[in-house]
Design a protein around this nucleic acid. Structure first.
Lengths: 248, 248
DNA sequence: CAGTGGTCTAGACCACATG
DNA sequence: ATGTGGTCTAGACCACTGT
């Protein structure tokens, strides 16, 4: 079925390494989602169906889907089925938005777009792993919670991956737009945090004094196929809010 | 065996809720580790042994151990056995130490103790969920990477949980000390991050100007039984290093 | 009721470590 | 050779959701 196997469990890769069947199944299912065979919010075939299609046991499919559930790629609902995860506001809020009011009540921040431009920028192409003269879309926004500006945001995208995005109306929740309109599904991201002094620009946007301490968050987001799809830099006020990180 | 069951899988809790067998097994095994029946680094009985002891199938024990592996409570080594996780430097470095040099090479920071005192402090007792007049151990340290002071650290512990710790020589890696000497195993923690201006004290310790931006990290750490066991506050320089957070 | 995911079991075999 | 965890399978039954 998936890879060299003949009644034997597990498949040897030539001589070194070893690729469990359930992982091969996982990779194949992820590939199908990445390719849009099953789109965000749609239901997958049932476990027995997938198992029969691929010629493996139901238990193996289950283990593959267990992993995908843990990765937030898929959502399972008992009695109903297994669905491709969407980037709805609730998911964004919990998975990709770690800035929380000190009160603890999570809230989705409003966005005001300051400008969209297409440029060639060495820092951005480096961060995105593109060739030095590739074109990059720059989006500047200010985000507010309860009317209070709290984040100055700059987003950099590979222009080739998001053709025509510069002419669009931008929603608050960009990851849903990436998935639905451009077929780019963000699966994971890494963030690097530093404390910096506010420059003139950020100070003005966030209504703080120049030199005030700000939290700088530098995020690289990866598409399902592993390509870097977005680089964004935030400058955040952290009076009255904080960044939450769980260690386990 | 574990809870009301009579040849039936899964056990109803009276009428509401449902507690899978493998979770009951997990909880029981965690309890035994928390009680010191099996100590850090020691080997657990093999899967078939545990299964027979508890009167469940090997598959159920396996699923319980899978969860515990995901929670970093246990380490499995093929061909050798399953071991209680230790708080060795490598684990601390990856699970509990998110401050990374910009170069990317993780390193364990040195520590210099500035003082240990026992006090009653309202802020600390609140953070630890203790009665307002409980005694708390305060430990102040400065931590350095490559000779450069980078973190001013204050650690608050419930005195009742760590009797006599104030008279001890403190190692760099405290979580191992907590586990080995006081039977308190840290299982998880949450961190809250803010950007703040350096006060006089931190500025002096970290060799920066007063008012410089610092990363303030506020960590609450939980023991295996769920009790809050430690509260620590860091003030960090983030020139040349950053806090790494993985979103997935 | 039928169909889905969730749990539990039993057994076979593979991969790895140790003696 | 033995014992450990790791993978894969097959089948039974439970719990939930919809018709």
């Amino acid at each position: 079925m998936v890879q060299g196997r003949a009644g034997l469990p597990g498949a040897p890769d030539g001589s070194l390494g070893f690729r469990p069947l359930y992982r091969q199944v996982r990779d194949l299912l992820v590939k199908r989602i990445a390719e849009g065979v099953w789109q965000a919010g749609q239901i997958l075939p049932s476990e027995p169906e997938i198992a029969q299609d691929l010629g493996v046991s139901a238990g193996t499919v289950r283990k593959a889907l267990d992993e995908m559930t843990a990765e937030n790629l898929v959502v399972r609902r008992q009695g109903r089925g297994t669905f491709v995860a969407t980037h709805d506001d609730a998911r964004i809020l919990f998975q990709f938005f770690k800035l929380i009011p000190d009160s603890g009540v999570r809230e989705f921040p409003e966005s005001r777009v300051l400008g969209i431009t297409i440029v060639t920028d060495r820092e951005a192409t480096d961060a995105l792993g593109l060739k030095a003269r590739s074109r990059v879309v720059l989006i500047d926004r200010v985000r507010s919670l309860a009317g209070q500006p709290c984040v100055a945001e700059r987003i950099c995208l590979p222009a080739a991956m998001f053709p025509g995005i510069e002419g669009r109306e931008l929603p608050n929740n960009l990851y849903e737009l990436y998935a639905v309109e451009f077929g780019v599904t963000i699966g994971r991201a890494t963030e690097r945090l530093k404390a910096v002094a506010a420059g003139t620009r950020e100070a003005g946007l966030l209504e703080v004094q120049e030199g005030s301490p700000l939290l700088r968050i530098d995020r690289t987001a990866y598409a399902l196929d592993g390509r870097r799809a977005e680089w964004r830099v935030w400058h955040c006020r952290t009076d009255g809010m904080h960044y939450l990180s769980e260690l386990r």
